[in-house]
Design a protein around this nucleic acid. Structure first.
Length: 556
RNA sequence: GCCCCCGUAGCUCAGUGGAUAGAGCAAUGGAUUCCUAAUCCAUGUGCCGCAGGUUCGAUCCCUGCCGGGGGCACCA
């Protein structure tokens, strides 16, 4: 808010300077006002003079001088300005000018930092979408948390957001799953079976086989093999999906829609999508297969949608699925995938271009892989042997809050080392507690104020607010003032880790303040504004943690 | 061979064109009669992988190379 006012003042000053003949052009580039890294350079600074140099045909320092000479500051916001370096204009803001941020936080509460970037657009975030052929692993957990948090950010920024899970319940993998279960059923009933290597090896297959055998309604072994496999497949996919749903719920992730691939086939939407592309002349036949001309939409080659054996590919149903998404009225579509699918992006983007949708209506977020460690050593993740640490195991070992926070302490396109021991440690290696502790500490102060000190939570008058002038207090307020722009940047760039880092920074400032200054003093005129300050901190911490799906405890 | 991600302090990582590149961990020393020590304070370390280019200005953008990881089906 202060940044915006400075920007306005600069613009008016530039105009005034031009009218006074001190600038040669009224053509001003967009004015950027940033916080300098070094405190000695003031609270805010602009490079306006440098970016205007070529238009004005003047040295940056002369432009800076002309502009600063015409700055009008009736509100007394600015303590002083200076021209420095190659032509920066630095602003030193009056410390008390930051105080309105506190009022905004108290007024808006949980809505502080929200904006209307999305303007009510409908957006769908599709994430996880793991095949229901086995339990979720840690990598799925990362995708789940990143997707969930991106959805939360977009919601906070004025989008109408739906979270969706796409169930790959059609096709070969499901058939393989059914076969795996069926063979285990046979094995458990004493038959000797040849269990193929490409079948699912995990112990969970035995569990499902047992439950199939325990089902009294129908003797699976009496059916012919294909019918039995199909029955096993349905049953297994259903059970596994239930497990996935439960695991995600354990991570605090829930979906608005679970969308079935099989349903796309059952309702003829896959055929319709292929037909539509064919009508557009974008599908041709070659070698007995049907190809989509993805190369003409930026992919490196054309891709098969119907194989020469008549079966459609996964790509075909994905085209149909995304067509369906737009038909459901989503203006923006976001897919969160594991980075191992990155090669798939160009062809789906091609398909979406063929639907006449612009690239900014479709975005794929790729999450890089997670290395699961224990005390710095890799935990074996041998899928072949079917033995691996599941997401469920991890969450139950380290807890939801720590798991979620750790997933968000890296840029999603960086690989992540997830160390189980670190995740459990209650040290600053594990910053979730560091941030939560702020919330708990302030809750404790508030209890103490009410119960022992008899200090009421009020909106202090101007006179007592003026006592909120310690450097640590101003720092805290300034940091809280950064929350709205952090939220909009995180949403815009779909980088939820920015919120996590923001919270760690805010927490550090609070802990330092807490150690240096007492909130509850014998001086009511001082305690009241300080209480007002720390309650604001607590609200912002709570907002941010809530955004990340992490709890904000009253005590620890 | 082609594509994607990464390369920043001893380690793990922030830093979407600005001035003197930051944090945590690790190391050393200190702080608790006082609102929760899961906290704080002090002490220092960098050819921002390399080489070009664009720019008034590059860790950031472009090109090439080097190193690490992942992906390249009429599989999903």
């Amino acid at each position: 808010m202060i940044k915006e006012r400075i920007r306005q003042m600069l613009l008016e000053a530039a105009r005034a300077a031009y009218e006074a003949g001190e600038l040669s052009s009224a053509d001003f580039p967009p004015i950027s006002v940033e916080e300098p890294k070094a405190g000695a350079h003031g609270d805010l600074a602009t490079n306006f003079a440098m970016t205007s140099a070529s238009v004005q045909k003047m040295p940056p320092k002369a432009i800076a001088q002309a502009v600063t000479d015409h700055i009008s500051d009736p509100g007394g916001l600015i303590e002083k300005t200076e021209i420095a370096g190659p032509g920066f204009i630095n602003f030193f803001i009056h410390p008390l000018a930051w105080h309105p941020i506190l009022d905004a936080i108290h007024e808006k509460g949980g809505a502080f930092g929200a904006n209307d970037l999305g303007q009510g657009q409908k957006v769908q975030v599709e994430f996880v979408s793991a095949n229901p052929t086995g339990p979720l692993h840690i990598g799925h957990g990362r995708g789940a948390v990143v997707g969930d948090t991106i959805a939360a950010l977009l919601l906070f920024c004025g989008y109408r957001v739906d979270r969706e899970y796409y169930i790959n319940d059609a096709g070969r993998q499901i058939h393989t799953l059914g076969k795996s279960v069926y063979l285990r059923c046979c094995e458990l009933s004493g038959q000797s079976v040849d269990f193929p290597e490409d079948a699912y090896q995990g112990d969970y297959i035995y569990e499902i086989a047992k439950s199939v055998l325990a089902d009294q309604e129908q003797d699976i072994l009496a059916l012919d093999a294909e019918a039995a496999i199909s029955r096993c497949a349905r049953r297994a996919a259903g059970e596994i999906l239930e497990g996935i749903r439960a695991d995600l719920q354990g991570l605090g992730v829930t979906f608005d829609h679970w969308y079935s691939e099989q349903q796309l086939y059952d309702t003829g939407k896959v055929q319709a999508a292929i037909e539509s592309l064919f009508q557009q002349g974008l599908i041709y036949e070659k070698d007995g297969a049907k190809w989509f001309t993805s190369a003409s939409f930026g992919d490196e080659k054309d891709r098969v949608v119907v194989r020469n054996n008549g079966q459609t590919t996964y790509f075909a149903s994905d085209i149909a699925y995304h067509r369906e998404k737009y038909e459901r009225g989503y203006q923006r579509i976001i897919d969160v995938w594991g980075a191992d699918h990155h090669g798939y992006v160009p062809r789906l983007t091609a398909a979406i271009s063929a639907m006449g949708k612009s690239p900014d209506q479709f975005r794929v977020i790729l999450t890089q892989l997670v290395n699961l460690l224990r005390q710095g050593r890799p935990v074996s993740m041998s899928t072949r042997a079917g033995k691996f640490e599941t997401l469920r195991d991890v969450v139950s070992e380290v807890g939801r809050d720590a798991a979620r926070f750790i997933f968000l302490t890296r840029h999603h396109e960086s690989q992540l080392d997830f160390d189980l021991e670190v995740a459990k440690a209650q040290t600053n290696d594990n910053p979730v507690y560091y941030v939560q502790y702020v919330h708990a500490r302030i809750a404790s102060i508030r209890r103490k104020a009410a119960e022992e000190k008899g200090i009421r939570e009020t909106t202090p008058d101007a006179e007592s607010m003026a006592r909120l002038n310690e450097p640590e207090e101003i720092q805290l307020i300034k940091q809280m003032g950064r929350y709205p722009e952090t939220v909009s940047a995180a949403a815009d760039l779909m980088e939820p880790h920015r919120i996590a880092y923001y919270l760690m920074d805010l927490a550090a400032l609070f802990h330092a303040y807490y150690n240096k200054h007492k909130v509850l003093t014998d001086d009511p005129g001082l305690s009241a504004p300080r209480l007002y300050l720390v309650i604001a901190v607590q609200k912002v911490i709570c907002n941010g943690l809530h955004m990340l799906g992490v709890s904000a405890p009253e005590s620890m």
